[in-house]
Amino acid sequence: MIAGLTYFVTEAWASVWRGRSAAILSVLTIAIAAFVLGLFLLVAGHVQRTVDQWSRSAELSVYLRDESTDGERAAVRNVLRATPSVAAVEFVSKTAALARFRKNFPELAPATDSAADNPLPASFEVRLGSDQSAAAVERLSARVSRMAGVADVRYDRRWLDRLVSLGNFVRWTGLLLAGVLVLAAALTVTNVVRLSLYARRDEIEIMELVGAPLSFIRGPFVCEGMIQGGLGAVVALALLRVALTLSAPRLSALAAGLFEVGRIEFLSGLSVAGLIVGGMAVGCLGGLVASRRIH
């Protein structure tokens, strides 16, 4: 078993080296596909992390009328706390709301100083659980908005859902594009392995004549495709890493505005392993298709 694998790898590597100019072509084709896929995974990962972060802090804001009574407020609080999809409820008084406003928007603070009364309403800030359904939140929102003492209910989940949809769109577009490129890469590998097969047709004939099993003849060619695929993925990851490092300062500034993440991070270990294994799988497929000519 191990001797057979060693034979496959040794023969495949020798073949890749002999036909290196053609092999470089297929390695680059796979590298382009893997680079595009990696880039989209990177962007989708950051979008997902932002969505997760925002989801955790997704809030339902229940604004209270200035004239609402303590009893009405208690009733609202009790309804909110009794709802399973609510993770936490915090009361923000008019004074606390004003202080927060002044802290968050210091340039607008003078405007509030000139106002006779505090214009900001008291509110309940409701943090929602991460697994709550949109319909359940809608029902809660509708119920609370009808309660006495409640002026308005704001639910910021709607645009978050839109962001999630946008993220999914980006991810699926990326996957589709990468899929087309992967197909092109698989075809290139198939043709490059076919060239190698053609160059070694005498050798294949000899192997057939001595009664070598098909797996023994085809194995090196499949392995050759896998080597090309794996190398392509490694090249793509290296390029992605270099591109990320070189553009990190600009990207971080951009990301700070776009995503609520501290800095741009490289792909996770799982994604890196997935890309390499995926590249090898594509190469393997190309090698298999090409070597099907041997029978």
Partner: peptide, 24 residues
Amino acid sequence: GPADVQRYRRTLGFVFQDFKLIPR
């Protein structure tokens, strides 16, 4: 069948005019 052909050929020896050796 195909697998039988492989097994059968393992019981043969062959020699050709052009030697059929693997140059590398």
